[in-house]
Design a protein around this nucleic acid. Structure first.
Ligand SMILES: [Mn+2]
Ligand SMILES: [Mn+2]
Ligand SMILES: [Zn+2]
Ligand SMILES: [Zn+2]
Lengths: 152, 152
DNA sequence: TCGCCAAATGCAACTGCCTTGCATTTGCAT
DNA sequence: ATGCAAATGCAAGGCAGTTGCATTTGGCGA
């Protein structure tokens, strides 16, 4: 293993081997602004670095997810699995249903709710997924009347 | 078509035909407290009512979703598609990761955020999906240390 | 540095969820 | 009742993700 082992320490800390593919995948995830499908990662990996099998990509991502290095979620429109690096920072994003642009935000509205639920029904929140969609500045002019559901 | 056409008006209002299967599926969804997979619905339909094909279940649910009669989402743990009746009321639920129980809540923490984002970055929220998980009262005693991500 | 072995990977077959093409049936307007 | 578009059943197919197994490789101990 050559000097490409940028993530050797991280991987060893998790008790798994530092390999070419694992380093490449971590590096690629670090460059990605938004969650990626396994296939997107696979294609990019084939282009820019060594040959790799799709099953290896899935296995690696699953391993990372089990170590909490990676967060796995599902795309809203087709349910396909998405993977992103777990930066241990709390972020959400807005999806524009007009142009499909993603916009990062730091807001998280769960904090208060967490206290409320703990005292009211004795439920301990450990995590959540929040997907927000709507129309961005550029798309507002073409805005359709909003669907009458889920429309607080 | 006999008197089972409980939803004839509703269906006609949406511009689609009232059929035995569509009525059965709407009825079944109305009895369901929580979102169901297509397969769960399919099995129940086969047991309690007439024979139906799985593809019909999917096609019907897709049709309903396109009319906003049904809300389609994805299960957190396996990504499988879930379907529920759109009651046009705003609800979320808590998933206990200990016993997989679902608990309905009426709280929605999006209201304030909606105003904030509109004024700050000119984004119009039209909808959102929120999935909250943690430990219910009964499972707290067996609680594992929380994962260090997404843990506001 | 060498050899060992469990872990990681490639490859190909396979599973399961969901979709689609097509022939037949059915709802419903006339 | 008749006609026709929409709905359905059936079977095949598509595609994301998984798995079994043979081979390779990383890391460790001698
Ligand atoms: Mn949050
Ligand atoms: Mn809400
Ligand atoms: Zn937009
Ligand atoms: Zn529980």
């Amino acid at each position: 293993m050559d000097e490409n082992s940028k993530y050797k320490e991280l991987l060893n800390r998790e008790g798994i081997k530092s390999t070419r593919h694992r380093n490449a995948i971590l590096e690629l995830l670090e460059e990605s602004e938004f969650p990626q499908t396994a296939e997107q990662l696979f294609i990019t990996l084939r282009e820019k670095t060594a040959s790799i099998d799709l099953s290896t990509v899935y296995r690696t991502l699953d391993t990372f997810a089990s170590k909490n290095l990676v967060i796995k979620s599902n795309r809203v429109d087709d349910g396909k699995a998405l993977y992103e690096l777990n930066h241990n920072e709390h972020k959400h994003h807005l999806l524009c249903v007009g142009c499909h642009k993603l916009i990062s935000i730091e807001d998280c509205p769960i904090g208060d709710l967490k206290q409320t639920l703990k005292s009211r029904i004795d439920f301990d929140i450990t995590g959540h997924k929040l997907e927000i969609y709507g129309y961005c500045h550029d798309c507002k002019k073409y805005k359709l009347p909003p669907a009458d559901h889920d429309n607080l």
